[in-house]
Design a protein around this nucleic acid. Structure first.
Lengths: 241, 241
DNA sequence: GCAAACAGGCTGTCAGGCCAATTTAATTTT
DNA sequence: AAAATTAAATTGGCCTGACAGCCTGTTTGC
């Protein structure tokens, strides 16, 4: 019946405003915030309050405060800000366990996606898949395409997660997914990806998953996603169980 | 090869120290921190730095700062501090989606638990189950036992999560699990739990899951957990799909 | 007895200042 | 002219001191 009164503390209001600016895409990764003294003026508060907000934002992993330089936005919040914050929690977990969690979550996301995806979402998924496959085939002639390929791959999986229409699972997955952008993951994955025949294999698997989701075959989508992630896991960690 | 240099910024060191005290159980939910001025003295910093740390801790959901009263520890961090922080991210998500995520995660935790649980962990699980079942039977004569029952139930499921030995999934699940302690969940659950015959049903299901895990029957554990959560979901949300 | 006023402790916020880190520009050196 | 050095400006990191407002318990006044 009654609405929550606006968070009274200044630093919280500042955190929320900046957080919103990030998720609205008005502040992007790499952008520099105005100097603290300027922020204080613009928000109409003291520098102390600004700094309380900034330290909180830094602890949440949204900005990085660099002495003598400025406060820099660290994340691209348009995909899932909550996911980026969850990623911050994952920092110290082992790569193996992080990847293993994909094996649990993603097949179920595929299942739910087959059940709930809207036509528009399916179409977008198809477009991403097309770009992904195209980029994959270009790698043979141009090894520099590996980076864009991994990015398209990330987006394809993320789109499936979005289609599952479960914000909790999406938050978790987008955190894990975003972790794959990190440098040490890229080197890990590059090794596995480039082995002979893998790209063709992935193309088949991705296409199969997409078709299953599009035609609403929930169980098929789930199983195929499971097999796909298991293949990835094998290719990356060189394990076979 | 080289270890990370200690986080330079004062507020970070303070956050880490307090965070550790919470996860070590030296600071428990409800405890009041010393006044900021005292903290400043004890940490050897200014009150400004203390407040930067406290605002960060509050944003992470670990403490609550009450004007004119003090800074209060908000979580019991001995189960999983990361989980408590993840719970903070869940605050605004719909109860249905939160519960649905259990349906995805817990069966897989049961699966992994059947594969990886140590004898000691199994034994502890058995002891929790025994207490749970005992409390469940006492409810008939003493409706006040509902609260303890739900707490034992929470612990039983959490123990399974722990046995899965995957820190990422455990963090997520313990966050969701801890959410079940919240007031609005308790009322939701109480309604469903107390319907005729449910408690006996749950006892059978719990026991079945435990036996499957103990004897290493991974697939059985997974399926039974899935069915159990689905029953719970039905009883709580009154849905049947 | 009971309500109202009071007092002490604590957080919320501000103002102003100094130091250290880092970038940028200026200056010197090669 | 290019490179290395130095100087200046910018910016975050941190500190001190102060005051208003909130909370709690106690005292005062009826």
């Amino acid at each position: 019946m009654f609405e929550q009164v606006q968070s009274r503390k200044y630093y919280m209001q500042i955190v929320n405003q900046i957080r919103n600016l990030i998720s609205e895409g008005k502040l992007n990764a790499g952008d520099k915030l105005p100097p603290e003294r300027v922020l204080a003026q613009e928000f109409g508060t003291s520098r102390a309050s600004i700094r309380e907000a900034l330290s909180a934002l830094e602890m949440l992993g949204l900005i990085e405060s660099r002495s003598g330089y400025g406060n820099v936005i660290k994340v691209d919040g348009t995909e899932s800000l909550d996911g980026e914050m969850f990623k911050t929690l994952l920092k110290d977990h082992s790569p193996y366990e992080i990847f293993e969690s994909r094996l649990v979550i993603e097949p179920n996301l595929a299942f739910l996606a087959a059940e709930r995806a809207t036509p528009e979402e399916i179409q977008e998924m198809g477009e991403i898949l097309e770009r992904l496959n195209k980029t994959g085939r270009e790698i043979k002639n141009d090894p520099l395409k590996v980076e864009p390929y991994m990015e398209e791959d990330r987006k394809f999986h993320l789109q499936i997660g979005k289609c599952a229409h479960n914000s909790v699972l999406y938050t978790v997955f987008s955190g894990v997914n975003s972790m794959m952008k990190e440098a040490h993951w890229r080197t890990l994955k590059t090794k596995g990806l480039l082995q002979e025949g893998n790209l063709e294999k992935y193309e088949d698997e991705h296409t199969g998953i997409f078709n299953a989701i599009r035609s609403g075959k929930k169980e098929v989508a789930k199983v195929q996603m499971h097999d796909h992630i298991k293949e990835l896991k094998k290719d990356i960690f060189d394990m076979h169980d």
